[in-house]
């Protein structure tokens, strides 16, 4: 295995390919699309961020990658391919889930089984999903807990989740996610609800582990700070669609989509002299309303007639830069 390439460039194997993924939730007012024609790729040794506000479909996307949709939602179209295999096929999903793609969730307080000890939760994973037996299980459990920086792992094996702090619980979650040596880790708001210092520790841990173990990470977050600290590349999601994708430095230096711009302007920066923060005008879209045009149009300061008529496609405007906005015409070739 080649050593890590910190800029995420060079020869990457394409691991995950999502194409036109659409996830719908039936409601009284018709089907609401949680994810609307989403296209996204993750390569090996990559840390990709997906950023968007609450309700933009980030978490729905995370589960859908594992072929999971919470009822009553369902996958209505598109494909999710893992190394060329269709993850939406249940037999493939059963093999891949937890083994090749593992996920950690936003709320470590409630994402561990409250009635099973840490040891029991690791044990069942290692026995049933990683195929380990006997003394190896305990040995590997201790190794995993050490790896995520938990002191006195022998004692912690006997602990219940309620006996651990929030940061410890997220460390245990990470340990269970890494139990089967996955190639891709989906992290859905892994630091939300944790203290700032703990957030930083968890992000650093994830960063180090992904480098050491060569695990790609798909970081789902609403926090641009997390993206800036952690990711090589970022995709901005709005109303179930990707509106912009760019390498991390370029996104922060020169955002193209009006929504990305708005997001960046609403984050306080210490490196610039700004007297005021600006928010994005308007409300997040009521997803049941379904405008035919660009979902961001009602909040956009520079909209035209065409924006109300059809949703702009995601087009390439430069090397590794894509944007979905009629104001930013790309290479229309």
């Amino acid at each position: 295995m080649s050593s890590t390439n910190s800029n995420g460039e060079a020869r990457q194997e394409r691991l995950l390919e999502i194409k036109d993924l659409t996830v719908g939730f039936p409601t009284r007012d018709g089907v609401v699309l949680g994810v609307d024609g989403l296209t996204l790729n993750v390569g090996s040794h990559e840390r990709l961020g997906v950023v968007g506000e609450s309700g933009s479909g980030k978490s729905v996307m995370g589960l859908a990658i594992l072929g999971m949709v919470l009822p009553p939602g369902r996958i209505m179209g598109g494909s999710v391919k893992w190394r060329g295999e269709n993850v939406l096929d249940e037999t493939v999903a059963n093999r891949v889930r937890g083994r090749e793609i593992a996920m950690i969730f936003q709320d470590p307080m409630v994402s561990l089984n409250p009635l099973k000890t840490v040891g029991a939760q690791l044990r069942e994973l290692l026995r049933r999903r990683a195929g380990l037996e006997g003394a190896k299980i305990r040995q590997r459990s201790l190794e995993l807990l050490e790896m995520v920086g938990i002191a006195n792992p022998q004692d912690r094996l006997k602990s219940y989740a309620f006996e651990l702090s929030g940061g410890m619980r997220q460390r245990v979650m990470i340990a269970t996610a890494l139990a089967c040596e996955p190639t891709l880790l989906i992290a859905d708001e892994p630091t939300t609800g944790l203290d700032v210092t703990i957030q930083d520790q968890i992000l650093t841990l994830l960063h180090d582990l992904s480098t050491e173990l060569g695990v790609s990470v798909l970081m789902i977050t609403h926090d641009l700070g997390v993206v800036a600290q952690f990711c090589d590349r970022v995709q901005v999601m709005y109303a179930g669609r990707i509106v912009e994708r760019a390498p991390i430095a370029e996104m922060f230096a020169d955002p193209q989509h009006p929504y990305s711009l708005g997001l960046l302007q609403s984050v306080p920066r210490v490196d610039r002299d700004e007297s005021e923060l600006s928010g994005i005008p308007g409300e997040p879209l009521d997803r049941a309303q379904f405008p035919p045009g660009c979902a961001f149009e009602p909040r956009c300061g520079e909209s035209h007639d065409v924006c109300r008529q059809s949703a702009p496609p995601l087009v390439k405007i430069a090397e590794r830069r894509w944007v979905a906005c009629y104001n930013r015409p790309g290479d229309q070739s």
């Binding site: 589960l63 594992l66 999971m68 919470l70 059963n94 093999r95 891949v96 889930r97 937890g98 083994r99 593992a102 996920m103 969730f105 936003q106 709320d107 409630v110 994402s111 561990l112 089984n113 409250p114 069942e124 994973l125 049933r128 999903r129 979650m173 269970t176 996610a177």
Partner: peptide, 15 residues
């Protein structure tokens, strides 16, 4: 089954 710990268990590949 809708609680996060159950979703986590399912996402780890338990049936």
């Amino acid at each position: 089954l809708r609680k996060p710990y159950a979703v986590t268990a399912l996402s780890r590949g338990f049936s």
